[in-house]
């Protein structure tokens, strides 16, 4: 008998011939935050939660995105950064990109490690937990892009900001490779003291539009 048949057979034996039918799962927890995506109070909450992870938030109007991305890179890399050291997601709107920045293509992922910063969009943000979700779409880029450069700038549009985890998951496609980012990479492995910045980007900057 194959291992598959064996394991499934053991499960059936363990549960017995008259296994109990599971009761319907009651979902009486908060399914929505009660505020529509993009509500000003949700944007404030997102800012509070993202900053709590020691990430930086820059807020701007829709027409200021390009300039604010550049300002975020000033903060993350220090003034005088070279535009060729910044790599952007292939689907990032042209007006958001720093002039002269490098557009990610299908180069070997390790080549991204030499770049100092990446700029991407997000698919959804979760206000209550301060989480950004990237879904591998052209505007978010492949997973390696938001991982290897040491500084990550993410642009979040107001209507992408959902209040709660259930609302955010409902807007995502589980067949895409998803990365949920809550602050810069961190560890608490030494005396449970939180240290920001281990293997992932050590600096996270969020440009919040609206």
């Amino acid at each position: 008998m194959s291992a598959r048949e064996d394991v499934l057979g053991r499960i059936r034996q363990a549960l017995g011939p008259d296994r109990t039918t599971p009761a319907e799962v009651v979902r009486d927890y908060r399914l929505t935050d009660g505020r529509p995506p993009g509500d000003p109070a949700l944007l404030d909450l997102l800012v509070d939660r993202v900053e709590d992870y020691r990430a930086t938030v820059l807020r701007c109007a829709p027409e200021e995105i390009g300039a604010t991305v550049a300002a975020a890179l000033d903060q993350g890399l220090g003034a005088g950064w070279a535009t060729r050291d910044v790599v952007v997601a292939p689907g990032l709107p042209a007006e958001w990109r720093p002039t002269g920045s490098d557009v990610d293509d299908d180069r070997p992922p390790v080549q991204l490690a030499a770049r100092s910063a990446a700029v991407t969009a997000v698919a959804v943000a979760i206000a209550e937990t301060g989480t950004l979700v990237l879904d591998g779409s052209p505007a978010c880029g492949r997973r390696a892009l938001s991982l290897l450069p040491d500084c990550l700038v993410c642009v979040v549009l107001a209507d992408q900001v959902a209040g709660s985890v259930p609302e955010a998951l409902a807007r995502l496609d589980p067949l895409r490779p998803l990365t949920m980012v809550s602050g810069p990479s961190a560890t608490s492995d030494i005396e449970l003291q939180r240290v920001e910045g281990v293997h992932g980007p050590r600096t996270l900057l969020v440009v919040l539009v609206g």
Binding site: R49, D52, Y53, D106, I126, E128, T129, G130, T131, G136, R142, R143, A144, P174, L175, R176, P177, L178, T179, M180, V181, S182, G183, P184, S185, A186, G200
Partner: peptide
């Protein structure tokens, strides 16, 4: 004891060009 851990990754099978 965090509202959300820094990184959560999900994937379904393989994605061409990513991972």
């Amino acid at each position: 004891g965090e509202r959300m851990n820094p990184y959560t990754s999900t994937w379904a099978g393989v994605t061409p060009g990513d991972g």
